[in-house]
Design a binder for these strands. Structure first.
Lengths: 220, 220
DNA sequence: TACATTTATAGACATAGAGTCCAATAAAAG
DNA sequence: CTTTTATTGGACTCTATGTCTATAAATGTA
């Protein structure tokens, strides 16, 4: 199954439309945008738009999937480097991702036109949480030692993902007063040990919160 | 400032429109609805709609504010009955509220047309969390004994609210396999003690999770 | 009850944006 | 260079919005 190698014009047009949309969302939000706005910003004929996408929303979805796969790719490489700091490293990288695209996410997560962004993100983060829980080295030993009452891992993953996104929304709406590193430290501390136990994640040696918060902020 | 006592027709029309909208949302989602759909369902002239609301969204907002105030009213009466079980009672009532309106919330929290529902709910739940934190009897003594590193209460409140909504979404999407009581117990356990400490909330004597989950389910 | 006021209504109207289609043109592939 | 494919502007239909007007009906009050 060799890819037919797409026509250069196709790639170019799609790229232009995607970039135009994301830029306009940051500037004016999503809801009020028309297909005309987007094609004008992209310098592309309006009819061309419909050669590639059914409607505005499909363009949004496809544009975001690109970013979302970046998110998922953040975690995969960590699968091999299993260690006790695996969990907090993953968490820091997640926060960093949202910092990198804060302008866009701020609009998409709080503006009314957020459309399906929040539910989709919830699923993605939730899956990542389950993935981390399943892969953690200490996971098995902990669950073995503590055959605790079983609460659906999927529920805990949604709890965790919701907490993460709630934190991110606060973070973005307050112009990121903490660094990604600090946010990760706070977040991990808040989960400990109720959630970490439930997910069977190691919560071995968390750095003291006061130390992390006292350190200089590299992101702002 | 005596209210001019609104014309009965006004109340009637607004009630009809609100009811029609909420019913249609449950059946067909929000986005695809037209003003015509709504007025038809309500048996009201389309022109009449514009005598009361600017657009579809304003009707949605005003209709939901009614439910949201129910949410906030759930907590207020508890302010007087301060006790160690205050927190878990409040949590149970919150879950119960979402169970009572599960059909509507399921659509609004997961369908793409959710519009501004999620951000709004996040703010409401977050405020409730701060309110509970501020009022809890044990709050002061704990914070006094533990002058721990200060993390913005507002951040923790958003963490808590996000976790709550993440849990609710899982709950509704899985047809509420646990009762509101059980969900509350799980939720409180997951927060303990990381969050409870940060908010200065009592986490005194939580019932054993296994006991709660073993008890018969009164909601399903 | 009767009256003055307010609201509801149907239908007409202007406008905007979505989505389709086509013939002409431009550009890429081979 | 030839063939194939993509882009383009413009015209067109359609749906829904939001406004307006004249008429009918309901309401609160004298």
């Amino acid at each position: 199954m060799v890819q037919p190698k797409e026509d250069r014009r196709i790639q170019r047009t799609r790229q232009l439309l995607s970039t135009a949309l994301l830029k306009l969302i940051e500037e004016r939000g999503y809801d009020s945008l028309t297909v005309n706005d987007i094609t004008e910003q992209a310098n592309v004929g309006r009819a061309t738009f419909y050669l590639h996408y059914e409607d505005k929303e499909q363009l949004l979805v496809e544009s975001l999937e690109e970013m979302f796969s970046q998110l998922e790719d953040l975690i995969d490489p960590l699968s091999e480097a299993l260690g006790e700091e695996h969990h907090s490293t993953a968490t820091r990288l997640l926060f960093q991702h949202f910092a990198d695209h804060h302008g866009l996410y701020r609009v998409l997560l709080t503006e009314k036109g957020a459309a399906m962004v929040f539910p989709r993100l919830l699923e993605i983060i939730s899956q990542i949480a389950e993935q981390i829980a399943g892969q953690d080295v200490i996971s098995k030993s902990v669950s073995a030692k503590q055959p605790q009452t079983r609460v659906s891992t999927n529920l805990v993953a949604h709890y965790v993902a919701g907490a993460f996104l709630g934190s991110v929304i606060w973070w973005l709406n307050n112009n990121r007063p903490y660094s990604a590193q600090q946010m990760a430290a706070i977040y991990v501390h808040l989960m400990d040990p109720g959630v970490t136990k439930a997910l069977g994640i190691a919560s071995a040696e968390l750095p003291e919160l006061s130390d992390v918060l006292a350190s200089s902020n590299s992101t702002l």
